[in-house]
Design a protein around this nucleic acid. Structure first.
Length: 632
RNA sequence: GCUGUCUUAGCUCAGUUGGUAGAGCACUUCCUUGGUAAGGAAGAGGUCGGCAGUUCAAAUCUGCUAGACAGCUCCA
């Protein structure tokens, strides 16, 4: 737009419309988000951001975090300020203070925040030279640390609202008035700068909106999310349970949960075999010697369950945390030719990882889990095609499960500044990562980069998924490894007679069954598609008089391989239907006098409602097609 | 592992300043013999997560311990 003397982003918004200027929370000048007071003194591209825009939301929430800090300072003047950014679904602020905040304290702070909003204070930005900035923040050790680390020549900016001033790069709202609805959600611990060696601060999470109705809607969504939570729903539906005697992170899969995993596993194993994967079955444990060779002993020991003491015992064993070195022994069974490659080994492998006690969560983070694992040994010229085929297999799995739309991609790289964590040389890492980058770019995978997220032996493509609470986890991973083949002496004889190390792709096709089940529970809110449902059909007689007839129906259904439950309880039909609905069964078959006479059943579909009466064979045919096509 | 909250019947939860436990649903039995979200009656079920301590007396107070939840750190 054309610049005018003294014109700000706010003025520009006002020129467009009065309404827009009222809704405006920030601007974006040449793509950089700025305050509404930002002067437009050059020709530039300008966007007016409202709360509807994600960048506008961030400015809105960031300002709310300042209001939070101001309120905390009013109530707890001794609190030291750390940082307070906007996040994807709200904001937080970290404080260092003796008193640990309770739920009642949060309500009190909310009240103070509302008072601050009422003052309608403006946010004023100013900058200071380093020395003066340090002087201004002399009571705030964390802010001083941040200032001291700002590079020479960087502008040190502050935002002031009433009696509160914070070191901050901005941008912010014009004033605090638009923050009409605030909810502080929780107070928890968080390490200063995310480092567990640093002091633990108190983090207050919250969210805010320009309208009360928007906040109510948001809070309702959070409540709904809780209802879908696999950890609650999975227990209610009797898919799994846990036992204090067995221990943390060791879920017990009950018959219905085990059935779903069995169905997934058969599907995966069959599909992998169709695609040229050969199944191995390797031991669940090995001597420490194996892990010393693989590097796990040095780089992953705290994540392993080790049995025995190296000081005292002749042999020390450890439960396997991954299958790689075991399947390598299968490769090493005999000399390999370049003609043997690619060699694709799959395994439904149970793994054991000694997760820290605070990490366990339902079926998502556990200490023992079973993964659809595989290792693929290939020549350099085969690497890209094989990587692609691994990716295609996972895509097929995700699409079949209905999770394809919900994932994002992370290219997990090493951290060159943390050499302790990784094996290999910078040259090897550069080569592995540039190979992977070339493949990902060629396949047009829309990835983001995760520094320091690589495995200790190589880079990964992680397929990430968010659970119902918005927390992200890795569902699937495909990794390129150039290091371990050399360590294990894995070779093939090339066409020219020379010996070479193969590339190894580590991959999973559907992830680990427990975690995948957890995400499916949340995806479908427990109402699984018919092909996965532990109970596909519930047969309900109208009264005891028709139990004989429904028993015949059940026999027919079972003969067709359908998973069926027969409710013969002496209860009202309405009651039985309610039970079946709560169990989220795909089909209910209801039978009484009229059905018995016609040799039919009344079919009620969870998805399509009342389908009326039909002959039992017609229903069986319909359901079998639905199962075969894995319809959702 | 760290910070905080929590643990009472199968489930969801009450239980007032310490005086050895209650509700609803589920469960069992009986009555009701029925058509799309709760028919009626009776009964059974708990060393209040575990172990110590304080006290005449602990579900309640203190310590330790095991789990659960949220977040941090870590990770499939």
């Amino acid at each position: 737009m054309q610049a005018e003397q003294g014109c700000t982003v706010y003025d520009a918004a006002k020129q467009i419309s009065e309404g827009l200027s009222r809704a405006a929370v920030a601007g974006a000048v040449n793509g950089t988000v700025v305050d509404l007071t930002f002067p437009l003194d050059q020709d530039c591209s300008l966007e007016i951001l409202t709360f509807e825009d994600d960048r506008g939301k961030k400015a809105f929430w960031h300002t709310t975090s300042h209001i939070l800090a101001q309120a905390v300072k009013h109530l707890y003047p001794e609190a030291k300020l750390a940082i307070g950014p906007a996040i994807d679904n709200g904001f937080y602020y970290d404080f260092d203070m003796e008193h640990s905040l309770t739920a009642e304290d949060l309500r009190e702070i909310e009240g103070e925040m509302k008072k601050i909003v009422k003052t309608g204070e403006r946010l004023e930005r100013f900058t200071l030279p380093r020395e003066e900035a340090l002087e201004l923040m002399k009571q705030e050790p964390y802010k001083r640390e941040l200032i001291e680390e700002l590079p020479e020549g960087e502008e040190i900016s502050f935002y002031k609202q009433g009696d509160f001033t914070d070191l901050c790069a901005g941008p912010h709202l014009f004033d605090v008035k638009p923050v009409k609805a605030i909810a502080l959600l929780s107070a928890t611990g968080a390490y200063w700068r995310g480092n567990e060696k640093n002091k633990m601060l108190q983090r207050v999470y919250g969210v805010s909106f320009p309208k009360k109705s928007m906040l109510d809607e948001h809070l309702e969504k959070l409540e709904d999310a809780k209802k879908r939570d696999h950890n609650k729903l999975g227990r209610e539906l009797e898919l799994f349970t846990t036992s204090d005697l067995i221990g943390q992170g060791l879920p017990i899969l009950l018959p219905k949960g085990a059935r779903i995993i069995q169905l997934l596993q058969r599907f995966v194993e069959d599909e992998e075999q169709k695609r040229g994967w050969q199944m191995t079955k390797t031991p669940l444990m090995a001597k420490s010697d194996l892990y010393k060779l693989s590097g796990h002993w040095d780089h992953y020991q705290e994540g392993m369950f080790v049995m025995g003491d190296e000081e005292k015992d002749k042999e020390v064993f450890a439960l396997r945390p991954m299958t790689c070195p075991f399947q390598y022994q299968a490769y090493l069974n005999r000399a390999r030719s370049y003609r043997d490659l690619p060699l694709r080994y799959s395994e439904t492998s149970t793994l054991f990882r000694n997760e820290a006690s605070g990490e366990m969560h339902g079926l998502i983070r556990v200490r023992q889990f079973t993964i659809s694992e595989g290792h693929l040994m290939c020549r350099p010229d085969q690497l890209e095609d094989e990587f692609k085929s691994c990716l295609e297999l996972t895509m097929f799995m995700l699409k079949t499960l209905g999770l394809y739309e919900d994932v994002s991609y992370r290219f997990s790289q090493w951290d060159p500044n943390d050499r302790e964590k990784y094996i290999g040389t910078p040259e090897q890492w550069d080569e592995a990562q540039s190979t992977m980058k070339r493949i990902l770019d060629h396949l047009e995978i829309p990835y983001r980069i995760g520094i320091g997220e690589a495995a200790f032996y190589g880079p990964k493509l992680d397929i990430q998924i968010k659970n119902v609470h918005g927390k992200e986890d890795t569902l699937i991973t495909i990794q390129i490894d150039q290091m371990l083949a050399e360590k294990f002496g894995m070779e093939y004889v090339d066409s020219d007679g020379s010996k070479k190390n193969p590339y190894i792709i580590h991959r999973t096709s559907i992830g680990c069954y427990e975690r995948t089940l957890a995400l499916l529970i949340e995806k479908y809110a427990g109402a699984f598609p018919a092909w996965l449902a532990p109970v596909q059909v519930k047969v309900l007689p109208i009264s005891q008089n028709y139990v004989d007839y429904t028993t015949q129906l059940v026999a027919k259904l079972e003969a067709a391989g359908i998973r069926v439950e027969h409710d013969t309880r002496n209860e009202k039909i309405g009651y039985k239907i309610r039970e079946a609905q709560m169990e989220k069964v795909p089909y209910m078959l209801i039978a009484g006098e009229k059905e018995q006479e016609a040799g039919s059943v009344s079919v009620r579909s969870r998805r399509d409602g009342d389908l009326g009466g039909m002959p039992i064979d017609d229903f069986i045919g319909k359901l079998l097609i639905e199962v075969q096509t894995r319809a959702r």
